[in-house]
Amino acid sequence: MTVEDPDGTVRVKPFAGRPGHTTVEQYVMNVFYIPILIQGYRALIPSVFWRIALFPINIWVLEIIQGYTQIFLFGYNAAWVYRGYDALFHGTIKLWYVHHWLMMGAALELVVCPFTLPLTETIASLWQPSV
């Protein structure tokens, strides 16, 4: 969890009760949305290249859904507010972060999923009753 100083420096400072980038509210929302972000997205787009190339859109959809859900529940986005000329949808997305989301998509597709998804499938198969 981070805070953004007036000069734009981002520091890790959990539970600081301030506007920042990642908050407890965002964490809770992510727990519910991450299966859609990963599994739903992979089911919808079969090509690794296109999943990486379109990953920023995937994240922006996540941010719009989570942001507007919080606006509905709390009257404002309690998790984060982006600022600047490229902050859209009431500050729920920031276009400049496209580079970060592309790198995150590449890491997810090329490093994380190839190792973790087979492991989760193996664990899930252990819970299925034997025939």
Rank of each mutant, 00 (worst) to 15 (best):
V111L: 15
A106I: 01
I52G: 03
A106S: 04
V61W: 03
V28A: 15
G20K: 06
F89C: 11
E25L: 11
M104P: 03
I64C: 11
L117H: 10
I59Q: 08
P56E: 08
R83G: 10
L110A: 04
D86W: 09
G20T: 08
A79I: 07
H90T: 01
L44D: 02
I57A: 15
V3S: 12
C113I: 13
G17C: 08
W80M: 08
I93D: 06
V31R: 10
F74G: 04
I64S: 07
G75H: 10
D5R: 15
A78F: 07
Y68A: 01
T2D: 13
I59F: 06
R18G: 10
V10G: 04
A107N: 00
L88C: 05
L102Q: 05
A78K: 14
V48S: 11
N77V: 04
D5Q: 14
L44K: 03
A79H: 00
T22M: 15
I38M: 09
N58A: 09
L62G: 07
L73A: 03
Q39G: 08
T69G: 03
D86K: 01
M103F: 09
W101I: 00
E4I: 15
C113W: 14
K13H: 14
E63N: 03
F74E: 12
Y76V: 09
I59K: 02
T69K: 03
R11I: 12
I65N: 01
V24G: 09
V111T: 07
H100P: 00
Y82H: 13
I93Q: 06
I64L: 08
V111K: 03
R51Y: 05
M29E: 11
P14A: 13
A79T: 00
E25S: 14
P118K: 10
T2N: 11
L102D: 05
V10W: 07
I38W: 07
R42D: 05
L108N: 08
I65C: 02
V31S: 09
D86C: 06
N77R: 05
T116G: 00
S47W: 03
W101A: 01
G67Y: 00
E4D: 05
W101L: 00
I93P: 05
L37A: 09
R42W: 04
W96G: 07
V3A: 12
Q70V: 03
V3E: 13
P46T: 08
F15S: 08
P6V: 11
F32C: 12
L108Q: 09
V61D: 00
A16L: 04
Y85C: 07
L37C: 02
Y33R: 01
Q70P: 03
Y85N: 13
N77W: 01
L73T: 02
P56A: 10
S47C: 06
H100Q: 11
V48M: 07
Q26S: 14
I34Q: 11
R51V: 00
Y97C: 10
K94G: 04
G8S: 01
P46M: 04
A16H: 05
A16E: 09
Y27W: 12
A106E: 05
V12S: 12
G8K: 06
G8Q: 04
I45V: 15
Q26I: 11
G67I: 05
H90I: 00
Y27C: 07
L108A: 10
E109Q: 02
V3Y: 09
I52W: 03
E63D: 11
W101K: 01
I64F: 08
H21G: 13
G91T: 04
A106G: 07
